[in-house]
Structures are given as C-alpha cells and as structure tokens.
Design a protein around this nucleic acid. Sequence first.
DNA 1: AAAAAGATTTAAGTAAGCTTAAATATTAAT
DNA 2: ATTAATATTTAAGCTTACTTAAATCTTTTT
Lengths: 219, 219
Amino acid sequence: MSVAIENFVKAIYKNDKHNVNNTKPGNIAKKLGISNAAATDMAKKLATRDLLHYEKYQALQLTEKGNKMALNVVRKHRLWETLLFQLFDMSLHEIHREAELLEHQTSDFLASEISEFLGNPKFDPHGDPIPNAQGDITTEDTSLALSQTQEGKSYVISRLMSDDKEFFDFCALHGLKYGNCITVTNQFRNNKMTQISANNNTILLNEDFTNIIYVNEIK
Amino acid sequence: MSVAIENFVKAIYKNDKHNVNNTKPGNIAKKLGISNAAATDMAKKLATRDLLHYEKYQALQLTEKGNKMALNVVRKHRLWETLLFQLFDMSLHEIHREAELLEHQTSDFLASEISEFLGNPKFDPHGDPIPNAQGDITTEDTSLALSQTQEGKSYVISRLMSDDKEFFDFCALHGLKYGNCITVTNQFRNNKMTQISANNNTILLNEDFTNIIYVNEIK
DNA sequence: AAAAAGATTTAAGTAAGCTTAAATATTAAT
DNA sequence: ATTAATATTTAAGCTTACTTAAATCTTTTT
C-alpha cells in the first residue's frame, strides 16, 4: 500500500479516536494538508478497496480491514518512536517527525525485531499504547484529560497527545513528561483553565493543553 | 528529492564504482528494474537539475552535486545496515533489504545520531566504507578481489560486495564473513576458479563469487 | 565495409495523487 | 423557514514516474 493510503487510513483512525469532529473528507484533508477534493477522491478509491465505507456527504468509516491497516501503521510509528527515544535521547517532537516517515518503510518483520529488542513495550514515550502484531491494543486506558481532573488531587502524567513542537518544548521546559507527578491546585471551569503544581512550580494551563495532557489519579 | 531520483543517482554511483560497464541508461535501467525509455527520460531530467551530464548515446556522468547526493544516500544505507546488524542480529541480506527502504526516509540529523550511537563506524557489516556527513570516504581501500589473489597466501575477508540472498546464505554456510581468515590453495586461472581453505574446509569458487569477495593479505 | 544485432531515443499513453474552480448539498443563522 | 455560510462533490487539468512500440543510432560480426 502506498504512503498516501496509509496516511489516509491513519488519519481517519486518529480522528475517530481523539476527536468529536465527524470524520468527513474535509477534516481528514485538513490533517493531511491536501485539498478537500483530493480527500473525496481518495475516500472513493479506498471504498472500492474495502478499506472504508463511503457514502456521499456522510462520515467516513473504516472497515475492519482499514482499521487493521491503520493499527499496523500506528504500531510501526510507536515502535520507532520508542526505539529512537531509547537509543538516541531525541526529543518527543523529533522522534515523532522521524517516525512519521519511517513507519511506511518498515516491514512487519523489522517491526517485530524492534518490538522484541525493546522488550515488547506496551506504550511509547508519549504514553500512547503500541498495538501488537495482530493489531490489538491489549492495555486499557484509564487515564483522563487534565481538564477533567479534580482540585486537590494528584496525578501521574500518562500521555502527551500531540505532534506539536511548541507543545513539547513547553512540556520539557516545565518538567511535564510521561510518568511525572503533578497536583491539580485549581480548576477554573468558567475560563477552562487548570492550575497545577509540578516540580514545585505552579503552572496555569488553558484548554488547548488540558485536553491533550492525560493523567491517572494517584490514590 | 524523490526516491526515484535518489535511487537513480545511487545506481550510477555504484555502477561507476564497481563495474567495467559503461554507465549508459540501459545499464541503469536494468539495475533499477525499469525500462530503458524511463531511464533515458530520467537522465534528461536530472541533467536539467545539474545532477549529471547527459549527452545522447554517451555514458552518464554524475556532477559533483549528483555524486554528493549519491554518497549521502549510500551513507544512510550503510549506517542503517550497521545499526540493524548490531541491534537485531539480522542477516546481511535482511539488513540490506530494510536499509534499501529506510535510506530514503532518513534525515541528515537522524543519520548523525545513528552514526554517533555506533561510534562513527568507518565500515558497514559488508565491509563497505561509510561516507561521513560531508560525503567523504576517508578510508583507503587496499583490498583486492579473490580472483586477483595468489596461491599459498592468506587473507582476511574485507568485503562481500553483493545484495543477493543466495550469495549471503552461501557465505554464512561456509563461514565466509567480514573479518574471517582464508587461505588461497589454488588459482585455476584458465577456468576462472579459485580454491580456498576456510575453517578447515576446502571451497571452490567460480568467478561470480571471486569477483565480489574482497580480501586483504595477511603478512 | 556492409549487414545484422543491440542500445538508445522519441512518441504516445497510463496511473497515482494531487491541484483549482465551479456546482451542489448540508448546516447554521436570522 | 428562508437565507447565508460552510462543506462536499464533480470536473478538468497537472506532475511524476513509469509503460510499450516505433524510430534512430551505435556496435559487432562477418
């Protein structure tokens, strides 16, 4: 399968997973940086290949085959991220950027070798789960967005759900990384802001950030 | 630059390096598995981009820019081979197959990280030299093909110049690998065969093999 | 040196993956 | 419930990297 197709099904998969947005061609087009027309064309084509269900003006839906393909690409992406992070101590943004290209040129065989070398990890350095070779995610996700947390409680950062360099730079600067502890000191619900304490620093985060930082409560 | 272009200049580079063949479109086409017409088209296009010199019916010649590009791709290929070989203990054929794809999706930044991680190696597991980030090969090649060796002398295997699975399987089976010692017991020059002793086994090799196995004399 | 064989080039055409512009449908706002 | 705004789709066209077939040139053989 071509890079364009792999990226298309991956984009649908991620959109379904993370967004409230309907998964229509326009949304996918925006994420992939292509025109709406191109996305519509591609959707029609992939429907004939049984990778997704397409009906005019309706949301796109991956078939089981399409879902498998997306998970296979996601698996390779996250394995690469984990390997690069471990070997080279590259930043979260850098490993993402490289994995975005490598994921499409990786045989299932090589993916297995990487996985085995790493001890078959269940999560990548962003905290995202790594599907197994069959395309199954066996871990369950109990984490919640920082925007949903409660004042006074403490949490472990479990996931930084972004591809954005600025976001990762900000996180690195303030010690917000996978596995670190934070305490929620204030929830300004009206302003959709959350104040936290991390490493003895107080940080005020807006909803752009509190919706993509995921945590687990420490009990 | 596209994968097709990178592979084209790489094929010219390798053809110039290893073969007596004129580097004409037909030869390159054969190596890349494309038609002669496609190779001619590509050659003309690359000439306009100052990657090679093209004159009708003449051999193709890389410009300095084209040569730099080829060496950059070769560098990434050989770094990947070295990394995969070290981490995963994959066969010479397997690392080649994977590197063939990964080489085109590797930033200069990542190449440097890999190189540094490996201790800036000068040679890959086939014994091929790894160009540095500037595209220079700083090692000098004193090795000679097995077909050029002398009866009674002993040599160290310095290079297995092939991409072929069967060849590598044969080598692995008989302990013919980078760094191993062999002794030339007979040169049958008329029949273009060479008889060697390796690991106390006697092996008779024809010119297909003696031209791609390179060695250095042990003095 | 002429003929035959072999390469190279030209020409015409294809598929993938895009583009822009115009037409059509859906959704939101008044 | 219209109208206005927004999305989606259709249509036509482009570029890259190929293909095959025919024409042209070069090399080899006799």
